[in-house]
C-alpha cells in the first residue's frame, strides 16, 4: 500500500504551492502517501546545530502578549494548530508545516505549564530569549528530569525483579536470557 508514496515526495515547485493552496478542496491531500524524508533539520539535530531559526519568543510565536492568560494561550495554540498541523497543510508542504507545528507545540507546552513558563520568563528577563536555544535547553533539562525519575522507578522495579528471580532460581527453569542477566547482575 505504500507503493504509491514515491510520486508524492514533497517537491519544491513554487508553482505547485501557489496553485495547490487554492485547490486543496477539489484535490484531496492523500496524507498516507506522503513519505517524507526527514529534512536537514533532523540530521543537524544530531550535530546539535539547529539555530538558524528567527529569534522569536514563544509569546511572539503564539501571537500573545507576555501577560497573556492561560485561556489566551490555549486559544492561540488551537488556532495555530488549525493553521500549521500537517493534517491541514497543503499537499507537498507537510514537512514544512510539521516543523512549524512542532515549534508551536513547544511554545504551548512551555507556556501552558506555570512552572515551565516561570522558568522561561526568568530566562527571557536575563536576556536568554532566543526561543530555540532556550527550548533546546528546556527540553534537555526536562528529559534529564524525566529520566532520573524513570531511573529511580526502574531501579526499584529492577531490585524487585531481582528479588523475584532469586526466588525463582530454585525452580531451575530459567531461560537462557534470564540466566545471563542474573550472571551479569551478580558479577557487577
Amino acid at each position: 500500500m505504500y507503493s504509491n508514496g514515491v510520486g508524492h515526495l514533497p517537491r519544491s515547485d513554487p508553482l505547485r504551492f501557489s496553485f495547490l493552496h487554492s485547490t486543496r478542496l477539489e484535490n484531496p491531500p492523500q496524507f498516507v502517501s506522503f513519505r517524507i524524508r526527514p529534512g536537514p533539520a533532523i540530521r543537524s539535530s544530531l550535530n546539535d546545530t539547529i539555530s538558524e531559526r528567527p529569534a522569536m519568543s514563544f509569546y511572539e510565536l503564539l501571537g500573545i502578549p507576555e501577560t497573556g492568560s492561560l485561556v489566551e494561550i490555549k486559544q492561540a495554540y488551537k488556532q495555530l494548530a488549525r493553521k500549521y498541523h500537517p493534517d491541514v497543510s497543503p499537499p507537498g508542504r507537510a514537512e514544512e508545516y510539521t516543523q512549524a507545528f512542532i515549534r508551536v507545540q513547544e511554545a504551548y507546552e512551555t507556556l501552558s505549564d506555570p512552572r515551565r513558563r516561570a522558568l522561561y520568563d526568568r530566562d527571557m528577563a536575563k536576556g536568554v530569549h532566543l526561543a530555540f536555544t532556550a527550548r533546546r535547553r528546556g527540553i534537555f533539562d526536562e528529559q534529564m528530569e524525566e529520566k532520573s525519575e524513570w531511573k529511580s522507578r526502574w531501579q526499584s522495579q529492577l531490585s524487585e525483579l531481582k528479588r523475584k528471580s532469586m526466588q525463582k532460581d530454585s525452580d531451575d527453569n530459567m531461560s537462557w536470557g534470564a540466566r545471563m542477566r542474573r550472571e551479569r547482575n551478580q558479577s557487577s
Partner: peptide, 23 residues
Amino acid sequence: CMDIDASNVLRVFAGVVMPGVQN
C-alpha cells in the same frame, strides 16, 4: 533520535559524535 512524521511513520536515527568534533 526518533521522529514520528505527519503520517505516523516512525524513523529511528543513530549517529556517533566524538567530543570536540563537529560532524
